[in-house]
Amino acid sequence: MMDLSVEIPGLFNYWIVIILMMAGFYIVISHGNLVKKIVGLNVFQVSVFTLYISMSKIDGGAAPILDETIKSYSNPLPHVLILTAIVVGVATTALGLALIVRIRDAYGTIEEDDIIELERTDT
């Protein structure tokens, strides 16, 4: 336990990543409301963005600008990767929500339990 209390401040970001990841994943699994599922999926993805951004940040590290006064740089590559991943995340959310709009038109509900019930009567 002593070790943990020393490590937590240094690994703060990583603890947050794990908490967000599990919280998001739990929402995806447990919630019956489809919009909430998509929100959970978003939280889950954001936790991974934080993981990438944290791993490349150095204490006191500067942005990648070539200047003689700057001694240490943060790694810009993971930051750029996450810009791409954010775009992918936005596209996924938009598509997911668009599908939910269509599902509401077709079924009149966005609760998964009701939808499953309706699907059973369909077949």
């Binding site: 998509i38 999926l41 993805q45 997911g96 939910i100 599902i103 939808i115 699907e119 369909d122």
Partner: peptide
């Protein structure tokens, strides 16, 4: 059929979890 929509959403959720 309307089931196609829910099938696509289910795939979207699991597919995104997989890619993540």
């Amino acid at each position: 059929e309307r089931n196609a929509l829910t099938a696509a959403l289910r795939y979207l959720i699991l597919g995104t979890v997989g890619a993540t």
